[in-house]
Nucleic acid binder design. Structure first.
Lengths: 336, 336
DNA sequence: CTGAAAGCGCTAACAT
DNA sequence: ATGTTAGCGCTTTCAG
């Protein structure tokens, strides 16, 4: 079976030395043009494939980028990965993706794996559990180009690419206000998550600009189970008399809409809703409400851009922070 | 900065040879128990980390599994990946994931990458474009354990794990029939896709069992754009008088439901719908209709299982085919 | 029980 | 312009 052909084999076939072959293959001008061509031709004929492992051992570079995400089933992250792939490919790099499943130990494990496998760069988004950052610092100590995205931390000086969560929320809520809403609730996730906090900031800001007082009771934190969402939404509609709801994600948006309909309300005449655009699917989920698109693909493209800048220049700007703008997709029917 | 500590360093520190260290580290009984312990202890103290690249170069094994999927943003594939990760982790292997984005050239490229990086196994699902299978045959020639899942082909003798698409469709349609439906339409995707063909088979079978004649006109192929779905569904409802719709995916299901509601129909009293469960999100998307769960996570677990069987035993059963059962999730409200 | 030494495939001084 | 050689970090005969 497949005995792999090495540089040595082609050297032997041509009666030249391995170094000649090695150099010819990388177009080293020290080698005569005709030998260069000859070597390249026979290498191809013999179906020679360089062994990246040997190269990596020798050079300590692997031509690969490690990408670590908290949850690959989340389409936001999957889309980011696509963006990264796109630009890595352009640079002639491959990416290897790992999902920590929000597990800190796995995150450490994968970081180590990428270090040991001499990844030329690492892109990662912190797991929910991560509060200790030694593994990230380790990457920095080893001078492995690293950039964080989305789930980052203030406890680290490191380049990062984030979404404009606060601004996005502001846009969404302002849109609702412009549509005539007066009492706007916010359906949020678990209280401790940074996303929620950032979006709450935007929510408050939009209210403030419109002169609407902030009412703590209209911000609901939940785990986004169907049942819970239905219950809290009904509560909001029946007892708090809200006329619009800003939802932190599409699952919540669907829950809100479903609850509203069960109460006989019409969307958006009786209740305006804004959700988030997490995937193409959103279009189907709520064809009649406006959504915020966080541009995950763009996040990936930009993150990879920062990384390659670092790889290419060899310089790190640990203060670098790129904020990716979000995009409000307005559906006609969402205006009251 | 991070000078990495090697086996040599710990050998020097203990005044023993590198081979002793190497052996001690892998608990070779030829080495005295106390030396073994000593070596292991100091290795840990010195923070020694084996260099997997050197190991791979020496042994031609990398302790990694390559996974190639057509589209990682598709939650079906993302979930499969989670399943694979789970069992790979148990075996002490890492996985590296690549998404071809349905591009045949990328598929070849990634296969080559995994070959060259000495992946100990490859799991892959063919891209839509793939009609040439030389790269897969190449894997087999090189004795790289390989298993296909989901998107497979009859043109290859190779272990595979697939979903029971036909059976799933049969279950779904039978469920509709049991609920009282008489004229059941099927919303399908592009005509040439295997999934659609398999599901059509199940659809026909269910009708046949119930003695309902098959009507070609009730099977609609579309690209699943929102507009198109709405249009075709309305057409079905108004002119074909269907009382139930079997949808090949959740996007179509949402489209169908939306169209029905726009016509003033109630779900499921006036129209019963069955969709597919592609993610947790499905629960939100159509809380009132039944769905088919294809168990992607299970597909991943089983696929990895087949692969590790092969890796462990060194034997390939190219006839092996595992069909993963799907699961019909019935929601009360979907019964008429 | 332990050490010496070869070699995996490649790159890059250092010759010539 | 090309060849020789050392060595990346590790495993594994083969010798003691």
């Amino acid at each position: 079976m497949g005995k792999r052909v090495t540089i040595k084999d082609v050297a032997k076939a041509l009666n030249v030395s391995v170094s000649t072959v090695s150099r010819a293959l990388k177009d080293n001008p020290e080698i005569g043009l005709k030998t260069r061509e000859l070597v390249k031709k026979t290498a191809k004929n013999m179906n020679y494939q360089p062994n990246p492992i040997a190269v990596a051992l020798k050079t300590s570079k692997s031509n690969t980028i490690g990408v670590i995400v908290p949850k690959i089933v989340n389409t936001f992250y999957a889309s980011v990965v696509e963006g990264i792939e796109e630009v890595a490919d352009k640079h002639g790099y491959q990416i290897f993706v790992s999902s920590t499943n929000e597990d800190f130990e796995k995150e450490k494990k994968y970081v180590d794996a990428y270090i040991n496998n001499r990844a030329d760069g690492v892109i990662l988004s912190l797991s929910r559990e991560t509060t200790d950052f030694e593994h990230i610092k380790h990457l920095q100590e080893l001078n492995v180009p690293t950039v964080l995205f989305d789930r980052t931390t203030k406890n680290l000086k490191i380049p990062r690419v984030v979404t404009d969560d606060a601004k996005a929320a502001d846009k969404a809520v302002t849109h609702l206000i412009n549509g005539g809403a007066k009492r706007i609730a916010m359906l949020s996730g678990p209280k401790h998550l940074l996303v929620g906090r950032n979006r709450t900031r935007g929510y408050k800001k939009a209210l403030e600009k419109a002169g609407i007082p902030f009412d703590e009771e209209l911000v609901i934190h939940s785990d986004a189970t169907v049942k819970e969402t239905l219950k809290t939404t009904k509560e909001l509609l029946e007892n708090k008399k809200v006329d619009a709801i800003f939802c932190i994600n599409d699952d919540l948006a669907i829950g809100a809409i479903t609850a509203a309909k069960e109460l006989g309300l019409r969307i958006p005449e009786d209740l305006a809703v804004v959700g988030f655009y997490n995937s193409k699917r959103s279009r189907y989920m709520n064809p009649s409400i406006s959504t915020i698109d966080l541009n995950p693909y763009q996040v990936g493209v930009l993150t990879a851009g920062v990384l390659f800048e670092q790889i290419t220049s060899g310089e790190v700007d640990n203060e670098k922070e790129i904020v990716v703008p979000s995009h409000l997709i307005i559906r006609e029917s969402s205006e009251k």
